[in-house]
Computed example of a mutant assay.
Amino acid sequence: MNTTHQRQPKKTALITGAANGIGYELAYIFALNGYNLVLVDRMAEKLAEVANKFQDELGISVKAIVKDLSIKTSPEEIFTELQQEFIKVDVLVNNAGFGIHGLFNETNLNTELEMLQVNLVCLTHLTKLFLKDMVKQGEGKVLNLSSAAAFQPGPLMAVYFATKAYILSFSQALASELEGTGVTVTALCPGPTESAFHERTGIAGAKQVENNNMMDAATVAKIGYRALMEGKTVAIPGFKNRLLAEIVRFTPRNLVTKIVKNMQEIK
């Protein structure tokens, strides 16, 4: 009697901001664990390089989508393109995001509006689009990149800190709503991490960065991936960051704000 063993189809992870930093490291971990990938980034050349590397070295399928997530139509375009190609997303990783440093009354409004679009609106929009099918199928995972910045106000990066607080709150609320559905939501809240983020943001010379033993992006990604697979709602990499997140809950808000402002100042 001949018995045919059907191989289970590989699951697919969609990762935004996947060309470098934490997004790249998360993509690499998913690839090592046998996931096919949908990688989204605005840097076409770097994204193609990453996609080719993963396909050639790890034998998985990688679809690269070049999109500027600060454009409001991008989430719908990504979703529609994947639906047309019958690509089912099992894990959504909302990693893309950026910040800007400076006094709010002096920083560039257009840059901050783009930040809100990428950090908040796009994340919310993509989650809305892909979550419905996950719930319908009774399984799925969402990983949202928040930050240790989510736990306190951030003078000199006021908008960025506020976006990360939104992501944490949003993720915790969704995780509660989705209990019993087979779908989990995890907020990853790293502290300062070795990446190009600090140069782009303009805080490379800030006390917070220069006085901090930063965690590398690969370690942050491993912690985030493990928390996601375990269905944890919040993951804060590093003992110091976890401790600070607890301390600020019991510290007067005006004192916390003064301390953060001091740490954000450029030397």
Rank of each mutant, 00 (worst) to 15 (best):
Val220Gly: 11
Val234Cys: 09
Leu188Val: 01
Ala158Asp: 06
Lys222Trp: 12
Val183Ser: 03
Leu156Phe: 15
Met157Cys: 07
Ala148Glu: 15
Lys164Pro: 10
Ile203Thr: 13
Cys189Pro: 03
Gly224Met: 00
Glu199His: 14
Gln172Ser: 12
Leu178Trp: 03
Thr186Gly: 03
Val183Leu: 00
Met157Trp: 05
Val234Ile: 14
Met157Glu: 15
Leu188Ile: 01
Met215Lys: 13
Arg200Asn: 15
Ala221Arg: 07
Tyr166His: 12
Ala158Phe: 03
Ile236Gly: 04
Lys222Ser: 14
Gln208Asn: 14
Gly224Pro: 01
Leu174Gly: 00
Ser195Ile: 05
Gly202Ala: 12
Ala165Leu: 11
Ile236Thr: 01
Val159Leu: 12
Gly202Ser: 10
Thr181Lys: 01
Ala217Trp: 07
Leu228Asp: 01
Tyr225Leu: 00
Thr233Ser: 06
Ala206Ile: 11
Lys207Pro: 14
Asn144Asp: 01
Pro153Gly: 08
Pro190Cys: 06
Gly202Arg: 05
Gly180Cys: 01
Lys164Ala: 00
Ala196His: 13
Gly191Val: 13
Ser176Ile: 12
Ser146Ala: 14
Thr201Val: 13
Leu143Gln: 08
Gly231Ser: 01
Asp216Asn: 14
Ala150Met: 05
Val185Asn: 05
Asp216Phe: 08
Glu210Thr: 15
Ala165Ser: 14
Val234His: 04
Met215Glu: 13
Tyr225Ile: 10
Leu188His: 03
Ala158Tyr: 02
Val209Ile: 15
Gly180Leu: 00
Val159Gln: 09
Met214Val: 08
Val159Gly: 02
Leu188Gln: 05
Met215Pro: 11
Lys222Gly: 12
Ile167Gln: 12
Tyr160Gln: 08
Glu210Tyr: 12
Ala149Glu: 08
Ala204Cys: 09
Ile203Arg: 10
Tyr225Glu: 07
Gly202Leu: 04
Pro192Gln: 10
Met157Gln: 13
Phe170Arg: 04
Leu143Thr: 03
